[in-house]
């Protein structure tokens, strides 16, 4: 076990733990935001740079501070390491900078985006964004396309977190989409009009931190905060059958996996409870499901309003 201090809170964690995961063990305000890292997907992280933190003491043995901010999702803790997240002005300034970069080409289409209300970029800009843009250039734009029978890709909104690529590599037997081109022209695509078609491809929607990949069976049906999320289960031969059904009255509007406070699919019985496409797209009838009870939302986001919440979810303060 190694000892690490993050924003004056000290915890002992297993050697090899990353700063981000150590922070998640402490919980609360010390946890840096993560847009690309996803603990259930091997190889994710390091790309978005929103989780940058300051290491003011490298370790007990070598107390020198690290000269650059480091990506907390891919930096392992050392014994005696001291990390600053919320308590560092430098982190605040640079994270603001990263958020500005993520937003310059992002459309301001939250009012018509299905992800609004549960969007991690929305939350992040609320915390770290500026109310004004300094970007006077033309934004990069793409036409929305179908990359599968049930998945719509809005490349305009994509922040290139690569999570969906990891899903395709790790959950499906054949990856047919990927990152094409490079630099600011890099994009998610299937290249040829080949539909993403696999029993577990729908999980790409659940891992997408923004509204780039949306569920075509739910598009424009309702705002997420108007729906009542319920934990529900069904008999399924392909997946665990444990999901969340999002209801309006007695109607099921959409089905998603069960997600934790970081937006990650939960582990159930020691296994990540990804859901199959049949559960996600085809079981929209109450008869398909056994309702277990209301889903407790524990995220700091619009989605927690009007819903049962877990613990105390404080309303956010607006940055001036």
């Amino acid at each position: 076990m190694v000892k690490v201090t993050i924003d004056d809170k000290t915890i002992e964690v297993e050697a090899g733990t990353t700063i981000l995961n150590a922070a998640r063990q402490i919980g609360g305000e010390v946890v840096p935001p993560a847009m690309c890292y996803y603990s259930k997907l091997t190889g994710s992280g390091g790309k978005c740079r929103t989780c940058l933190v300051e290491v003011s003491q490298g370790s007990e043995k070598d107390p020198r501070p690290m000269p650059k901010l480091v990506a907390s999702c891919s930096t392992q803790v050392m014994d005696g390491m001291v990390v600053k997240n919320k308590t560092s002005q430098r982190v605040k300034e640079n994270r603001d900078g990263v958020v500005e970069f993520l937003l310059i080409n992002h459309p301001l289409d939250c009012p018509i985006c299905d992800q609004a209300g549960e969007c991690h970029l929305q939350d992040l800009s609320f915390e770290n964004g500026s109310q004004k843009t300094r970007f006077e250039e033309e934004k990069r734009t793409y036409e929305p396309i179908d990359i599968g029978d049930k998945i719509k890709l809005h490349m305009n909104r994509c922040i290139l977190c690569y999570r969906c690529v990891h899903v395709a590599n790790q959950l499906t037997n054949q990856r047919v989409h990927g990152i094409l081109h490079r630099g600011e022209h890099a994009e998610i695509s299937t290249y040829i009009e080949k539909a993403v078609d696999n029993d577990f491809s729908g999980n790409m929607i659940d891992v997408c931190p923004v509204g780039a990949l949306t569920d075509k069976t739910f598009r424009f049906k309702s705002r997420v905060w108007f729906l009542k999320p319920m934990d529900a289960s069904c008999e399924c031969s392909k997946c665990s059958g444990k999901a969340v059904v999002w209801m309006f009255g007695n109607e099921i509007y959409r089905v998603t996996a069960r997600k934790d406070q970081y937006g990650e699919v939960e582990d159930i019985d020691g296994k990540t409870a990804w859901i199959c496409n049949e559960c996600r797209y085809d079981k929209k009838d109450l008869k398909n499901w056994t309702i277990e009870g209301p889903r407790k939302i524990n995220r700091h986001s619009v989605i927690s309003t009007n819903h049962y919440t877990e613990g105390k979810v404080e309303p956010k303060k607006l940055n001036s």
């Binding site: 033309e138 734009t141 036409e143 695509s189 290249y191 040829i192």
Partner: peptide, 10 residues
């Protein structure tokens, strides 16, 4: 100017 032609290509 900066709008992209979307792949797929033909």
């Amino acid at each position: 100017m900066s709008s992209h032609k979307h792949t797929p290509i033909s």
